[in-house]
Nucleic acid binder design. Structure first.
Lengths: 205, 205
DNA sequence: ACAAAATCAGACCATATGGTTCAGGTGCGC
DNA sequence: GCGCACCTGAACCATATGGTCTGATTTTGT
């Protein structure tokens, strides 16, 4: 019944532990999470937990970096390099918003921002696994499109950052602050359209 | 000059306590800060501290909301309603960046994002004291300018949010993540110019 | 079936922390 | 100088937490 997933370290409860830790850490942050809570949530004894991970920090790093990588999957978008800008951008905006506004995306973001002082390197991990990658994808597309004449982008790096930031408009900061914001399809569409419109006004041909 | 100010502040060490708490909370967050550390940093005995504040949470709230209000001062910009868009926006961008990229601004932001779950209302406080206000200022200006024909903004709220977000481009997220970013005058200028340029391309006349 | 490996529940330990208390200082108005 | 409110320093308490250990129980490979 157990799927031979591949590089299972040792013991069956390993993934279980990680899953519990994920849940609690994402909910309570590093300091806020207690090891007992984690063990309970994982349905595992503390002894077992400590048989896998030497201490809390390591456990946390494992979870956090894991989430960062998992984030990568959600964030990487294969852009059709031949598509017309308006459509490509629209899709890219939706992808980005889907991540940044999801519970998961918010939790990761929150954790990284909060714990980056206690865990140097966490921020970089997150950055390079996620934002940096989609940034590269965007840059490549902007170069391509500029060469083909469907866009006119002088500074692709800046343009990519701007577009990314435009996708966060309104919804993202307000959700982070715990304001009661429902980011329904209508709200998302408004922001996405706003982003595309603005971007094309600046860099369109 | 001392008695006139707001609330009942009995005792001389009151401000000292607040100052120490500010320092430690801003550095370590809520959970990370220990009351002993705070007392030490404030140059005050724990007994004195607890004679002013019934518990740690209250102390934190006092500090946090205080910071939020202090933030308001830094963020509120009296925009010249008659100025030409390019100049007004440029100045606004600089103001915003000066806040968001300062140690102070980052610390407040980090605290709010991190502790907003533990302290509901903190986020709202921050929001309404700062971002919401400058948002209103921007909106008013956009309305004015649109009426006068120097801008063409259909959705002033969206435009204000977009402009705000454009001011965060690149520097803000990367600093939050603890990537080693120096936001010198050159980098700021690049972002500010980029923001203004993009905004005018979309909403200029 | 048997032994080794893994896991369990929970007692246990050391420490840190929030918070209290109290016997004395310290400063200040009178 | 006197009185009094404020402040101090440290001892103290209760609790929670990270982490260890043990002896019993279950899983697993063979």
């Amino acid at each position: 019944m157990d799927v031979a997933e591949g590089k299972i370290k040792r013991g069956r409860k390993f993934d279980q532990v990680l899953e519990g830790a994920r849940e609690i850490f994402m909910r309570d942050g590093f300091e806020g999470a207690s090891v007992d809570d984690i063990a309970r949530a994982a349905g595992v004894s503390k002894a077992t937990l400590y048989s896998y991970f030497p201490d809390k920090r390591l456990l946390f790093m494992e979870v956090a970096t894991g989430q960062c990588q998992r984030q990568a999957e959600e964030c990487i978008q294969s852009i059709d390099p031949n598509g017309p800008p308006r459509e490509v951008l629209r899709k890219a905006a939706e992808r980005m918003m889907r991540f940044y506004l999801s519970d998961f995306g918010q939790a990761v973001f929150r954790i990284v921002v909060a714990e980056t002082a206690r865990f140097p390197g966490l921020g970089r991990e997150f950055w390079e696994d996620g934002p940096a990658r989609s940034r590269e994808v965007l840059i490549a597309y902007f170069r391509e499109a500029t060469a083909r004449g469907t866009l006119r982008v002088e500074d692709p790096g800046l343009a990519a950052d701007q577009f990314t930031e435009l996708c966060k408009v309104d919804l993202h900061p307000r959700m982070l602050m715990g304001l009661g914001v429902e980011a329904g399809p209508a709200e998302r569409a408004r922001v996405a359209e706003g982003a595309v419109e603005m971007f094309l006004a600046r860099y369109g041909t």
